[in-house]
Write a protein that binds this DNA or RNA. Sequence first.
DNA 1: CGCGTCATTGATGTGCATCAAGTGGTGTGG
DNA 2: CCACACCACTTGATGCACATCAATGACGCG
Lengths: 218, 218
Amino acid sequence: MGLTPGELDRIEDVVASRRKIKRGSTLFRNGDKFTSLYAIRTGFFKTCVASEDGRDQVTGFQMAGEVIGLDGIVNDNHTCDAVALEDAEVCVMPFDRIEELSREVNSLQRHVHKIMSREIVRENGVMLLLGSMRAEERLAAFLLNLVQRLHARGFSQSEVVLRMTREEIGSYLGLKLETVSRTFSKFVDDGIIEVKQRHVRILNTDALREIVNSKITT
Amino acid sequence: MGLTPGELDRIEDVVASRRKIKRGSTLFRNGDKFTSLYAIRTGFFKTCVASEDGRDQVTGFQMAGEVIGLDGIVNDNHTCDAVALEDAEVCVMPFDRIEELSREVNSLQRHVHKIMSREIVRENGVMLLLGSMRAEERLAAFLLNLVQRLHARGFSQSEVVLRMTREEIGSYLGLKLETVSRTFSKFVDDGIIEVKQRHVRILNTDALREIVNSKITT
DNA sequence: CGCGTCATTGATGTGCATCAAGTGGTGTGG
DNA sequence: CCACACCACTTGATGCACATCAATGACGCG
């Protein structure tokens, strides 16, 4: 990332400790005091927000190398829950330490800004998805995004083991779990993917891509 | 905001110039090189993203005192369009200058982080809206949010002049313009608001609030 | 004054939600 | 080691909220 060895040392300084989170338990919850950002070392998380009346929305799925907790900065309180979907380990990075160090290390400062901006852009994309896409388009976009991120981490481009339930996928995509299930089945019928439980194999990436950007085509 | 006079001087230093934008023209566009953030002095903007196939989604409406351009940081390119919905003026704040100064002025650094985090939290809320609310709930939430922000700027709590078309509201809320129009009409029938063109008067704020958080009630 | 843009309202269609039944995989305790 | 219970998932039948299509009306601007 273009850092001098000296800078690298400083960056490691932002990690105060590590923390293990069991599958199903939360790293932080809505209302919790904000102190730190968390870099995921291993494992898989979802973040979700809830409204007073009990509605619930998954706002993202995060994997190794990604940072969560940015929502807490503005009010010194977290506004969403971060739940581990499998046993996980995170680096705890106290935010005041991050701010302190990023005053000295330009590249760290830059890095922090980019992480936050990237999250804003990602959410813009989700808004586009939720606001204007149909069920098939949403699921296709979801699958493509997932394999792309996994591939960047050295995993297969065509095989995914979903860490989340159909209901969680549905919540993220603004669909009901039955619709998610039916749409998976349709993709299978069309020969685009194979599904066995949570194992998904993508047979035709281009077909998925076509589904995503085509309002007209079935 | 708890700044010393010296710090205040430094903060004004981030403003390189001002720029006027005519109604209907863009402050920046998807693909434009990112150089600066913009603080809105006067006027009203929308930001919108587009997908390759021509789909279009309004991602936010911004008014005086708010900052736009954060989407450009991550890739040094803007990923959305910012369009003035009325004649506007912005402060141009070159981002490298912001980074430079925020290394020296802690409160500025903190401020920048909060602005970005606030945007992330706002978008989380929009995702909840798009993913789980019905048309009436969406529009009620939209109106409440709008008057709340206007009220914080010294305007009426009960009267709004909409700066955007029904279509733009619909795009933001994931609805078609006809649905927005019909929902306005329903609120009028129910005695919750008065509508005359783009002038909206809120007669019963509590009713709007009830609509927002109640999955069950009609 | 006439045209273009924006908004309203009605009639009809459809994509997804909802309700409901059944299957299969997994984990647990007898 | 098997029986049972539980949960996630699939699939079908039906309904509804919103989209779509279409006609008309109200401003505002040149």
